[in-house]
């Protein structure tokens, strides 16, 4: 299964959030969407998940326009994990993960052994099995994030869109979740995540989509997309690079003067830093 989006534009409150973005997600791919704050990453993911309609442009899921898919079919095809996701009632962890099976349930909602297997596998992958009997309000931020990721994995959808799934995690679990998501992609799913950590994107992802001010600056393998010029243009930072055991790494090191940085249209950022 694959998602293809062409010419996506979105305007909210007179502010252009996305401006003609083309992007695709294919089976077996692990893609990171990166870019500075306010670049439109989360909005892009919501559009791709079918949670909002673009003002212009089209999204197709295996050639079928996303808006034409019945909601339950869409839910079984595309799993989505929202940014800063919350759990509003202190439900048990295993029941939260089980919510991911709702799109697969019949009208009477009885759980099947396939549901139980999907739930167990998702909890195994996110190392949340030991948390199964805990109440949501006793979890730490990082534990909650992993439980919610397990919920999204439990859907068993061929496409997974996750908005900052590692934001609240310690380094150990960041590496673990990235490896889990890469493994999910290796098993045939298309996985797209919003990410701020360029080092993780470089190391784990097959492809990086660099957004800035609602436009797609580059889309390709991490080594090509995250070059010095583009990082300076998008983030106004200078980076250190190296490689360890054949794997490249990247570390943001110094801020650059924001002149020449692509910013959203309403801000006047053209003055050099020294004169302010």
């Amino acid at each position: 299964m694959r998602l293809d989006a062409r010419g996506l534009s979105l305007t909210r409150g007179g502010h252009r959030i996305l401006d003609g973005v083309d992007v695709a997600l294919r089976a077996g791919e692990f893609v990171a969407v990166v870019g500075p704050n306010g670049a439109g990453k989360s909005s892009l993911l919501r559009l791709l998940a079918g949670l909002a309609r673009p003002d212009a442009g089209e999204i197709a899921c295996d050639g079928v326009p996303l808006g034409k898919l019945p909601p339950r079919t869409r839910a079984r095809s595309i799993a989505y994990l929202e940014q800063r996701a919350a759990v509003h009632w202190p439900m048990r962890v295993d029941e939260i993960v089980a919510l991911g099976r709702l799109p697969s349930r019949g009208p009477l909602g009885a759980a099947t052994s396939a549901d139980a297997a999907a739930i167990a596998a998702a909890m195994e992958m996110t190392t949340t099995t030991a948390l199964a009997g805990r109440r949501a309000d006793t979890l730490s931020g990082g534990e909650r994030m992993r439980v919610l990721l397990a919920r999204a994995l439990a859907v068993g959808a061929p496409l997974l869109l996750a908005d900052e799934p590692v934001a609240a995690l310690d380094p150990h679990h960041q590496l673990h979740v990235m490896a889990t998501l890469r493994e999910t992609a290796r098993r045939g799913a298309g996985v797209m995540i919003v990410l701020h950590d360029l080092a993780l994107a470089t190391r784990f992802c097959d492809r990086v989509v660099l957004l800035a001010a609602g436009r797609c600056l580059a889309d390709g393998p991490p080594a090509e997309v995250l070059d010095d010029r583009r990082l300076a243009e998008a983030y106004a930072v200078d980076v250190l690079r190296g490689s360890e055991g054949g794997e490249p790494w990247i570390l943001p090191w110094r801020r650059l003067a924001p002149a020449g940085v692509v910013r959203t249209g309403r801000d006047d950022q053209s003055k050099p830093e020294e004169t302010r």
């Binding site: 839910a75 929202e82 919510l99």
Partner: peptide, 21 residues
Amino acid sequence: TAPALDALTLGEDSAASLGFD
């Protein structure tokens, strides 16, 4: 509406992504 209310525990976007209108 019981299944939709269950899903809403995760927030409106997540509930919508689980196929609930």
